[in-house]
Design a protein around this nucleic acid. Structure first.
Lengths: 138, 138
DNA sequence: CACTTGACTTAGACATTGTCCATTGTAGGA
DNA sequence: TCCTACAATGGACAATGTCTAAGTCAAGTG
């Protein structure tokens, strides 16, 4: 177990069995799960956990900055527990596989003031698209 | 009217009243509409057009490369008629306003081979997030 | 340790967005 | 004009996410 639970407790998070389970699911597998996948794994550990609680908890973890929301495709949002190491994503256009990638350079610096329209720009999200080796072969 | 309809006809697109209306809606307003907003505007011009047809037509326009799908938020996909000038997006995290932006550099070149995992990378989508002037003031 | 309080959880109804299918209509060529 | 394949319709269905009212429980207090 990581220090995720410790950090949350330190922030005054009320610790419940449900929240612990959700945090454990995210912490245990470094893949990009949908909310429903998180729920399915949580149910395996705590059968009576409800969908609403999973959604609530995920939303809170996102607000706290412990987890990132990734919306690569039209379907469900995915949750990325790797929030403390900035990174971007590479998505297979056919099968939807997702890899974390670390491009060179800083895209934030590439947006000149003249293109900011007065916005306070705080974040960039880069999604590379292509075909994974398996789909390219097929 | 632009040459969008001409291009489509030239590609062997069967021209129907419904498709013309959808194309006109996208062509007329250079904003980023959701599928439902497109449908609403289409209904204003052709009351009996169905939702399924709008979805089908939008999907075809995307396949043809005449329109881009943008998924900036958790909600609906948006459709960007500005498919022929490559650009990226700047989104207000609070109100969802979207602007087209043209950053310097080429993010595709910033992804080293060692970070491509054998993928055939063909496209990049960059989404800047922040607060628009109105939301920053509030 | 028991009490108290307000935050947390639950179940399920509801909302939104998108897809599918069988039927009906029609564009465009012969 | 007539045919035929392609397109449109509308309504059911699916997937994802949100909300609410009522019950439950973590954690601080005495």
């Amino acid at each position: 177990m990581s220090d995720l639970l410790e950090r949350l407790r330190g922030r005054g998070w009320r610790m419940t069995a449900q929240r612990r389970v959700v945090a454990e699911v995210l912490d245990g597998e470094h893949v990009h799960l949908t909310a429903d996948e998180v729920h399915a794994r949580a149910v395996a550990k705590l059968p009576e956990i409800s969908r609403a609680t999973v959604y609530n908890t995920l939303g809170e973890l996102v607000s706290l900055g412990e987890v990132l929301e990734v919306t690569t495709d039209k379907r469900a949002k995915r949750y990325d527990p790797n929030a403390h190491r900035p990174h971007h994503h590479l998505v297979c256009a056919r099968c939807g596989a997702i890899r974390d990638v670390h491009p060179n350079g800083n895209p934030l610096a590439d947006l000149p003031d003249s293109e900011r329209f007065g916005f306070t720009v705080s974040d960039v999200e880069v999604t590379y698209r292509g075909l994974c080796p398996d789909c390219a072969a097929a």
